[in-house]
Amino acid sequence: MSIVLKHEIPGDDFSRAGEASSAVKNKLKQMGIPPEVIRNVSIAAYEGEINAVIHANGGEITVTVDPDAIVIVISDTGNGIPDIELAMQEGYTTASDNIRALGFGAGMGLPNMKKYADEFDIRSEAGKGTVITMKIYMKRPKD
């Protein structure tokens, strides 16, 4: 049976960015999910949440917990990403100096999400928004 957690990401207040990911983390803890899985989900969700706040004036996060994996979907209705390949490069950012002064916008968000997720998919359309889907396995495959 799947359990679905859904949270709105408010876009107007940077100091509240992370509340949705925090709520997800607490819920996963209560559910007894392994700590390493929780951490990977938390970091991936948090990076996505920060991105939605910085670049798209908020959005929505949906986390589906299945017995074998956790799927995180972060969607927004922002301006979209014109060049996804470029955006995926470590260090590439379009964030303002203002955001950098807050400790983000180092061009590590998308690469970090890809790193912490076992499966990563990003779709974006100009003027319509971006949807990121990340799957994290309950058990890490053997290297």
């Binding site: 100091s15 992370g18 948090y46 990076e47 400790g103 983000f104 180092a106 590590m108």
Partner: peptide, 30 residues
């Protein structure tokens, strides 16, 4: 840079920073 911190994961770590906003605590929490 919290983005750089988020690229670093290990148990029982301490974070030294000069940044003062709530996202520092959120980053630590995650």
């Amino acid at each position: 840079m919290m983005s750089d911190v988020l690229a670093f994961v290990k148990d029982q770590a301490v974070l030294l920073t000069g940044l003062l906003n709530p996202q520092v605590v959120r980053t630590a929490e995650m």
